[in-house]
């Protein structure tokens, strides 16, 4: 029996199918990401699990118990909101203690667990502060501590890192994963950022127009996307002509194409533009096969200036074809 099971879950607003026939099984301790563009239904799905949105059809089962229409305050889930949703008139410690108070945990035990949770997110020194006195990253961690202190069976994260600047976001990604593994809570995170989904998740659930279009490990989603849409959503891709007439089009990721001296590869190409990304160079090329994108590791050797004639080469084994009917 799966730990959490979504069974043909749907949410319709009049004729609009915000979430349509979504089925998903989550094992205990798993970190799952719902990934997709805005409006794909990922947040509505999360809100149905949380109990803030009532499902039109389908079932939600948590540990075998049907919670589809249970009130939100009876589900006992830990939720981290995109806006953090801290209680502005309470101190950090009171914010974290609120859930325990609702569970009628006695005072001494409450204080001990609040301290523990704040230590876990490295905020023990800020217990007496108010949310307005904290930075964005600190607020985010208070929200996390408040959610996990009640020892929820399931942790729901709604775009938890989207309000942080890039550097902090990356640091928090790893911290989030570390904390999740320490406490072992089954986690579902909603995100539109594929890098975020890939770096922390055990499995990624790709959603599009209210439906699930792929469920796989991050590696599989990147290497074997189920559709061209997914392929382009999770990274850049180059189209190569079919191997045989009438065969499927082939795809290759930019970092898997090699640049060779002119005439020594499988297709001639000219560098149109180059972009320096620090650890990598990104090239835009023009070739008889069409426009191409190539990413090369910055190994210290000089980059090719625009206008350089080069050749493209690749290993046939890394070419991907998309499943029939993949959109």
């Amino acid at each position: 029996m799966p730990f959490l099971e979504l069974d043909a879950l749907s949410k319709h607003y009049g004729p609009v199918k915000a979430v349509d026939d979504v089925s998903l099984s989550v094992e205990q301790g798993e970190f799952i990401s719902l990934l997709g563009p805005s409006g794909c239904g990922k947040t509505t799905t999360l809100q149905m699990i949380a109990g803030f949105v009532d499902a039109t059809a389908g079932r939600i089962r948590l540990q075998g118990r049907d919670i589809t229409h249970a009130p939100a305050n009876s589900r006992g889930l830990g939720i981290v909101f995109q806006s953090y949703a801290l209680f502005p008139h309470m101190t950090v410690a009171d914010n974290v203690a609120f859930g325990l108070e609702m569970q009628k945990v006695e005072r001494a035990e409450r204080a001990r667990r609040v301290e523990q949770a704040l230590a876990l997110v490295h905020l023990d020194a800020h217990a007496g502060r108010y949310p307005r006195e904290l930075s964005g990253g600190q607020r985010q961690r208070v929200a996390l501590a408040r959610a996990i202190v009640i020892r929820p069976p399931l942790l729901l994260l709604d775009e938890p890192l989207s309000n942080l600047d890039a550097k902090l976001r990356e640091a928090m990604q790893f911290e989030l994963r570390t904390i999740q593994q320490q406490v072992g809570t089954t986690t579902i995170m909603v995100t539109h950022d594929q890098a975020e989904a890939f770096s922390v998740s055990d499995r990624v659930v790709v959603m599009q127009s209210g439906r699930i279009t792929q469920i796989d490990t991050p590696y599989e989603v990147y290497e074997h996307p189920a559709s061209e849409f997914i392929s382009r959503f999770v990274g850049k891709t180059n189209l190569l002509p079919p191997a045989t007439d009438g065969g499927p089009q082939r795809h290759v990721r930019p970092e898997k194409l090699m640049l060779k001296p002119a005439g020594q590869g499988r297709a001639d190409a000219t560098i149109v533009d180059r972009f320096f990304l620090g650890s990598q160079w990104l090239y835009h090329l023009e070739s008889p096969l069409g426009p191409m994108v190539v990413v090369q590791v910055n190994d210290g050797s000089p980059a090719h200036p625009p206008g350089t004639a080069v050749a493209l080469d690749w290993d046939d084994a890394i070419l991907r074809t998309l499943p029939e009917g993949g959109r």
């Binding site: 949380a50 589900r75 909101f81 609702m102 408040r146």
Partner: peptide, 12 residues
């Protein structure tokens, strides 16, 4: 969402 947060933490 502040109210949602309180609800999710078990408040009536």
């Amino acid at each position: 969402s502040v109210e949602h947060a309180a609800l999710s933490l078990g408040a009536s």
